[in-house]
Amino acid sequence: MKRYIFICAVICGLAWSAHAKDVDPDVAQECARLWGSDYHMQLFCRKQQMRAKDEIRLQNFETSLRGDSTTQAAILNSKKLYRNGISEFNRFIDSCYSKAADITQYKICTVMDTYAQIRTGAKGRNGAQATEDRQIAQANRIFGKTQGKAIQKSIVGEAILAVIYDLNN
């Protein structure tokens, strides 16, 4: 019987120490300062603060998935244009790229291009390689070969996440 109690105590101790490590040190320190030797309140404080911290992290993650306001506006515009048919939408994307002269304009075109690629199942003109080649060519035209591909990659990553997030919500 003593052996089972010892094993249980070891397991509980390991579980408690693993749980204690999940608490942010700043949270633990602040709760200890607020509640002193009232350990029930310290525990309650820690749980509440860590729950709130996790909720903030989740909100920040969802915000980053949606993209910034430029990305969101481009997705909204893409939805409207896509309803008119993919041919008209592709013509608009080409026109967008031809007028793009800075990173914001390029980003709008790239988000729309990515939207078209995902919505069409990456077929034909909107195939993965054709879309990437078009995006890189336009980035090189606007920013030069040295920066073009790096800018394209950073924007496309955000665009893909934002479009997929939007389509699934």
Rank of each mutant, 00 (worst) to 15 (best):
K145A: 07
F89I: 04
D113G: 11
G121K: 03
I103N: 01
F143Y: 04
K123M: 14
E88G: 15
S87G: 11
R119W: 05
A137R: 10
A122C: 05
C96V: 02
K99L: 09
E88V: 14
D102M: 02
A128D: 12
N90I: 03
D133K: 10
R141P: 03
K79E: 13
Y115W: 10
L81I: 12
N140P: 06
R83N: 14
E88A: 15
A130D: 10
R83A: 15
Q152A: 02
I142P: 00
G127D: 14
Q105N: 04
T114E: 04
Q129K: 13
I151Q: 00
N140M: 08
K145M: 01
Y106E: 02
E132A: 09
K107G: 09
A128C: 05
T146E: 07
S98N: 12
A101S: 14
Q129R: 13
G85Q: 08
S154G: 10
C96R: 07
A122K: 11
T104Q: 12
G144H: 04
A128W: 07
I86A: 13
A128K: 14
Q152L: 04
K99D: 05
Y115A: 05
R83K: 15
A139P: 03
V111L: 04
Y97R: 00
E88Q: 15
L81V: 10
R141M: 08
T110S: 13
A130F: 12
Y115E: 04
G124W: 06
A122Q: 15
K80G: 12
N140G: 01
K99V: 02
Y97A: 01
Q105E: 13
I118N: 00
R125Q: 15
K107F: 02
C109L: 00
G127L: 03
Q152Y: 02
T146H: 08
T131I: 08
I151E: 01
E88D: 15
A100H: 03
I103W: 03
K79S: 13
I108Y: 09
K149H: 06
D133L: 08
T120P: 07
K107N: 05
R91D: 13
R83G: 08
D113W: 02
Q117K: 14
T120Y: 03
I103F: 02
T114M: 10
A130I: 09
N90G: 04
A101Q: 13
T146G: 08
A101R: 12
